[in-house]
Computed example of a mutant assay.
Amino acid sequence: MADEIQIEIARRYMRGIGFGDQPYLVYRHDDAGHPHLHIVTTNIRFDGTRIDLHNLGRNASAQTRKQVEEEFGLVKAEGRGQQAQPIEQSIQRQKAQYGKRPTKSEITRVLRLVIDQYEYSSLEELNAILGLYNVVADRGSPGSKMFEQEGLVFQLLDEQGEKVSASIKASALYMQPTLKKLQAKMKRNTELKKPHAKRVRSAIDFALLKKKAPDLNYLVGALAKLQIQVLFRQTGEGFIYGMTFIDHQSKVVYNGSDLGKSYSAKNILERCQLPAWKRPVSLRPERKWLPPLRSLNPLTLFIDLGRMVTEWMAPEVYSRTFVVDGIPYAYRKTKKRKRLKK
């Protein structure tokens, strides 16, 4: 919504409640599921008389609010709490967008939504939430100067999770969420998270027991109804090696293994039926031998030998078939038997 429209909404509201001639300050807030306004004013007039505030909220304010909602086509306040808003919609509206506002302002806005609102106990868990809003906290590569000096920067991401903005130092942001401050908070959060773990574990168990043959899509949908979001960590081949659970109701984040051995990615996958592309890739395929010769006919023998050489030299067969205990077959050393002296 344009700033001019919001200014007019504020002006219209203040006139409606009888404060149109009073000095007031309006500022916009984006730290909730919707942009909103805060207004600061005084009930003392220029001549020193006082504006009566008795039942102002129930009478003039409520009536004016309804009129403003109708005039400007706003979402009506009455009945909003009767149905919980899907968390995905709320997050989608609050996602940072590169170029929409100054990068520093966008990052600060998202940090206000996350840093002090959620309980996380590692930088990976913090990034799991920040990533939902297209922001990432980066320590730098291990061994780098920034990593060794415990520095921290924040950047904006695009919808594919790629970094698209310049780095902003944590110390340069309004909240100054430096690594030292975050680590102290994470240490406290480790204990604060524990009472909420039972709710997440119970939600997972109930979802998996309720359906005879549950799959990941069913699990994700069942938990979403309870405001619990599931994030998967996958390899390029689609192999799922980790899960993160974000409880948006209790404002806590857990890696699956932190909830207990039964809630690690490996154990949950064993309880679910996965689509083929998500099944774990075998790291040690069965050993395949070259096909036998079909006959001793010279022509057939020549064709078979050519086929054997082709399959033997194929890189995919060589690397995939003849690897035993991590060592290519051709490089495996064999011990020579010593001949017995007569």
Rank of each mutant, 00 (worst) to 15 (best):
I5E: 05
I7W: 10
R12C: 13
Y13G: 09
R15H: 14
G16T: 05
G20A: 14
Y24N: 02
H29M: 11
A32S: 11
G33D: 13
P35W: 05
H38S: 12
T41L: 02
T42R: 06
F46Q: 12
D52R: 04
D52T: 02
H54P: 05
N59Y: 05
N59F: 07
A60P: 04
S61M: 14
E70G: 02
V75H: 03
A77G: 04
G79R: 08
Q82W: 06
Q83R: 11
Q85N: 02
Q85H: 06
I87M: 04
R93Y: 00
T103P: 01
K104W: 01
Q117H: 10
Y118K: 01
Y118S: 02
S121Y: 03
L123Q: 09
E124V: 15
E125Q: 12
L126N: 06
Y133W: 06
A137C: 08
G140E: 04
P142W: 00
M146L: 15
E150N: 14
L156A: 12
L157G: 01
G161T: 05
E162I: 06
S165P: 09
A166I: 14
S167W: 03
S171I: 11
L173F: 01
Y174G: 10
M175I: 09
L179P: 05
K181E: 15
A184T: 13
K185R: 15
T190W: 04
R199Y: 07
V200N: 00
F206L: 11
A222Y: 00
Q229F: 08
V230K: 02
L231R: 02
F232P: 07
G236R: 15
I240N: 04
Y241H: 13
S257G: 04
L259C: 08
L259F: 10
K261Y: 08
S264K: 02
A265D: 01
C272M: 03
P285W: 01
W289C: 12
P292R: 01
R294M: 08
V309C: 10
M313W: 05
M313Q: 12
Y318F: 15
R320K: 15
G326W: 00
Y331H: 09
R332T: 10
K336S: 15
R339M: 14
R339Y: 13
L340H: 09
